[in-house]
Amino acid sequence: MIDIILLIIILSVIYMIGSIIEKNHFKKLKKKEVEYIKLPAVGFGCKNWSSNKQIKDVGIVCGEAAIGCDYFKMFVSNLKSFFGGRLTSVESVLDRARREAIVRMKEKAKKIGANVIINVKIESTMLNECEQKNMLPQCLVIAYGTAIKYE
């Protein structure tokens, strides 16, 4: 009985802290995305780039992010995967990691004064996949693309 009460207390505390952290992170991401909206990042499949402007500099830019999945999310997704369906709690972790990586890539591109990023690719991996029950997965994401600077 005490075990169950303790588990519920721990879960509710982690839920509160985790949701505050997540909310703040989403707020920060939204602010940064608006800030960098003028720097276009063209996605997958843009293999050639031709423009009338003189090209001054070409280089690769990367952004990386590592976001952990908290205990409450893992508990809920374990319960939910028994019945199947959308695991919304884990979706948001992946979403945060990818957006954070793209924002950091744009940050670096802006620092070197690039005008456009083309052929953006996103590479992701999970550390500590949930083979063991007490392991919490962590999502590592690298976003990279070719930054082009005009004269």
Binding site: E22, A66, I67, D70, E100, L140
Partner: peptide
């Protein structure tokens, strides 16, 4: 440290650094 941080979620700065160094 990262394991403890992971318990409540959020960004893991150590692993971000690790990823950057290895890249």
């Amino acid at each position: 440290g990262a394991g403890l941080k992971n318990f409540i979620g959020g960004e893991l700065k150590n692993y971000t650094d690790l990823l950057r160094e290895s890249r």
